[in-house]
Design a protein around this nucleic acid. Structure first.
Lengths: 343, 343
DNA sequence: TTTTAGCACTCTCGCAACGAGAGTGCTAAT
DNA sequence: ATTAGCACTCTCGTTGCGAGAGTGCTAAAA
């Protein structure tokens, strides 16, 4: 691909901009009328031919207006989209919403999804932060009726796991407290393997409980049961490209099916470059996302707990606004997560 | 409304059945061809006129086939729909899925939504069980770095609430344990008011912590932050009545907007009759649900914790199958909830 | 060499006309 | 009470056509 002239880049940028607003193929005349370029429509047309040959523009049919292709969008996002910042007023509003929410991580995550959907006008998704490695912090054993015992395991970072446990015989609360205390002494700060290799040091009940702890932590490492919060699904239905149900289904299916979504997120976010990533038109062989784009990023406290957040919408998306919104919200949520893990 | 003859009821039932399968207006000839009635199409037509005058059938336009009206569906569901049971094979499959899931309430709830969506082929929703009244069970104070303390409050039924607490000065874990112990002695089994009226009995830090407990429990009573799990949203998009995006949006908006959904559920389920309720065509002034029906029910342990579950789909829905599916899943989930609250 | 005016050409979209088909309602005969 | 017969109504898919938008090309102008 040969280099584009300044004017060609300007035209590409303007077409992207105009198409984003009108959702209709944009013609040469519209362009010179709308933005007062001091050239004629014929000149624009000549440039358009070049851009079309380069594969950056396309047309729905012969002699209709031009539409950016996936490659066109990529060029636009990579080279032409300057670093945009969210307006201060908007930032303040978001930050305000955050700080008057209850001080609970899950609540913040849910709120993030809502805010993203609201400000980007597309569908948003935010996963709960997933601890990189479960670290033992505290164990509590609570007697209930009969031989049932409620086991509450608190992990580093405040995540809580609980499990019911049925004993062979009834045990008093005091004795349970002693056992828990003993285990707490030894296991604090440890990870699943070191706990599992430690069971022999205990006797009887304590041994069982410790093994169970290890298993719970191992499971926390392997299977992540955190929630995925979605919001703004109806936003994407409002977009004209999803007017017919079948294309809308494809997009919503990805958002709905947990396994599919996790796969996409994992694949995109494994090359652990920081910052916001833009995936245009389902790059990388995601057939379902053919005319969708994603703007996603990691957030959280690297090394402790991280999650993914982002939006999914039509390829025709306001990338500037959206990228800065995702970046800003990710920053805020990261701060809150770091606080609650470090504090 | 005068009483319907047996044959009229049969015809209504057949039209409902046929329309549910074909999604197209059903004519008199189709009816006699499909099901071998030993009368002519003219006779059917005469009966259809009656049913139309009674408001049970409608026609999209003059001289098209007949379609059940909302009233027609109501009549069908109330009087003509016998008690149907889920096939044993299906029951066994569902029960199997349940019992191999991890033993955690939230996981079961999520699974219920998934199963409902799968078996009813419409959108499902299940709320987490909400404790009728928060009852104190156990408090734990855990020292972390600096002056931060993690407060973990366990409520009757195993629900866990946590909050960070910043102290005026650093306190040792042993002392925290003593304070927690003291509070546990006094507060066990109490509700929020009695705990709040009890703060004077303590001194210093214990007083603060107790007050905070009371507040957390009061908040648990008033604002319910439990999750609402949804599934099968794409199922409803597959239905022809939601082929155009605007009608699909209306339906999905109700499912998406938490406040709206809670309002609907509350209104429908307040007349605390047991069993599965069927709301056809948004009865009761829900304009958004004009051509939707809901099949919903309460589940859980009445007096301890209950939640709502059900499905939302087009008015043209397989009520028989759906009702029995909802009833069966609600029963299973109730058992599990009761177990975890009673045990 | 670059830009522009002019023009023929192409393709969509909306509209009207039309015939086939499905289904009804009515009437008269069974 | 039921049914055959028939005229009538309405939708839906097709076809044809003109308006409109936009392009690509060519030849002239800068």
């Amino acid at each position: 691909m040969s280099a584009l002239s300044d004017r060609q880049e300007t035209i590409l940028a303007l077409i992207v901009r105009e198409y984003n607003e009108s959702a209709e193929p944009v013609g040469s005349k519209t362009l010179v009328d709308q933005y007062n370029l001091n050239v004629s429509s014929a000149t624009i047309r000549n440039e358009m031919v070049i851009l079309t040959e380069e594969g950056l523009l396309g047309q729905p049919y012969t002699s209709a207006g031009r539409v950016p292709t996936m490659e066109g969008y990529r060029y636009f996002v990579r080279k032409l989209l300057g670093e945009t910042e969210l307006p201060t007023a908007e930032k303040r509003m978001i930050s305000h919403q955050f700080h008057q929410a209850p001080a609970e991580v899950e609540e913040w995550v849910r709120l993030s999804a809502s805010i993203l959907a609201q400000h980007s006008q597309v569908a948003s998704l935010v996963t709960s932060p997933r601890p990189d490695r479960a670290i033992f912090k505290h164990l509590e054993l609570i007697a209930t009726q009969g031989r049932q015992v409620l086991m509450v395991l608190v992990l580093q970072g405040g995540e809580v796991r609980q499990q019911m446990l049925t004993l062979a015989e009834s045990v008093q609360q005091e004795q349970l407290a002693m056992i828990a205390n003993e285990i707490n002494q030894c296991c604090s700060g440890k990870m699943s393997e070191s706990i599992e290799s430690m069971t022999e040091e205990f006797t009887d009940l304590a041994q069982d409980v410790t093994r169970l702890c290890g298993e719970m932590m191992a499971r926390a490492d392997a299977f992540w049961t955190g929630e995925i919060y979605r919001d703004g699904l109806t936003n994407v239905l409002a977009q004209p490209e999803f007017a017919d149900a079948s294309s809308a289904r494809q997009a919503l299916r990805v958002l709905e099916e947990r396994s599919l979504l996790e796969e996409v997120l994992a694949n995109v976010l494994t090359p652990n470059v920081g910052g916001v990533q833009v995936v245009i038109g389902g790059e990388g062989g995601w057939e379902e996302l053919k005319d969708c784009s994603m703007v996603i990023t990691r957030y959280g406290a690297p090394g402790f707990a991280t999650g993914a957040m982002g939006v999914l919408g039509p390829t025709r998306m306001a990338y500037g606004r959206t990228i800065s919104a995702v970046r800003y919200v990710a920053g805020l949520l990261s701060d809150l997560v770091i606080e609650s893990f470090a504090g």
